[in-house]
């Protein structure tokens, strides 16, 4: 795959603990194609978020990248100067974190938070920022007149959508979503993720979607990677990973998810 947007090659990330070095990510390699929704699944502590932090070089001591390459369009992100990286981060790679709804500044109107990002990365003036923000709000289905509100005036689901909107305002090529809906209830979760799938289609960006919920991941992603204790144990097309998982751990992960009784019955019947 030469036209992959993001190539991760033999990535290793270590943490220094009081007991010595802990290998959180061990020789992980995978590609994310242009316009692809790639899912990374696994339990807490398997290293999936560590990979997300490594890609944006947000891994801070006691974590450090011990080896490997992360190529965006063939450009090595790990070798970049801090200044060059600032151009890539947010502008080309956007991030939505788990408690992203708490990552908005409570003291600033949402409109100003759009301007903050747009001014820094594109030099946009207030009018242009306002227009772009209105456009983004329409995109995520929030009335544009609420742009002058403060974060606390929105529900958790709306705040998460605002964070996604701010992220999209810079038209990044890749968006990393680390458990974007874990703190939300199922209906709101579906509302947001259906929108992400739509926006992905219309805007063509790539997504690295990280979650521990395989069921949810299978509804959204094109390809899925499963991680266990820092290693990528299985990568494949969503159909293959969900219907014919090869690795034992993937099978166990599927079996461990509480599902509705009617869905259990469905799973038992041959697909």
């Amino acid at each position: 795959m030469n036209n992959a947007l993001l190539q991760i090659r033999d990535l290793s990330v270590d943490y220094l603990l009081d007991k010595g070095v802990f290998n959180a990510v061990k020789n992980v390699s995978f590609d994310i194609g242009r316009g692809e929704l790639f899912g990374l699944a696994g339990e807490s502590g398997c290293g999936k978020s560590t990979i997300a932090y490594a890609i944006t070089r947000l891994a801070k001591p006691p974590a450090w990248v011990a080896g490997g390459e992360i190529l965006l369009d063939g450009q090595d992100l790990l070798g970049m100067t801090e200044r060059a990286l600032q151009v890539v981060r947010w502008k080309r790679i956007g991030m939505v974190f788990q408690s992203a709804m708490n990552s908005l500044n409570p003291l600033m109107r949402v409109e100003a938070q759009f301007h903050d990002v747009l001014y820094r990365h594109t030099g946009s003036n207030r009018e242009k920022s306002r227009a772009r923000a209105e456009e983004m709000f329409r995109l995520v289905g929030i009335p544009a007149d609420r742009l002058s509100n403060y974060p606390h005036q929105f529900s958790g689901g709306m705040r998460q959508r605002i964070v996604i909107a701010i992220c999209l305002a810079l038209s990044p090529e890749l968006i990393i979503m680390d458990e974007p809906t874990t703190a939300l209830d199922v209906v709101v979760q579906r509302e947001i993720l259906e929108q992400v799938v739509d926006l992905q289609k219309s805007h063509g960006f790539s997504v690295l979607f990280i979650t521990h919920d395989l069921h949810l991941m299978a509804q959204i992603c094109h390809r899925i990677g499963v991680m266990l204790k820092g290693e990528l144990v299985e990568v494949g097309d969503v159909k293959q990973v969900s219907r014919a998982p090869v690795h034992d751990y993937t099978k166990r992960l599927w079996g461990a998810i509480p599902s509705l009784p009617s869905m259990n019955a469905m799973e038992r019947s041959p697909a």
Partner: peptide
């Protein structure tokens, strides 16, 4: 019940406005 993640029913692009 419809919002419980079901791995065998992938989201269809273009449906979000309808679900919302």
């Amino acid at each position: 019940l419809s919002a419980v993640p079901d791995p065998y029913q992938p989201f269809v692009p273009g449906d979000s406005a309808q679900f919302l």
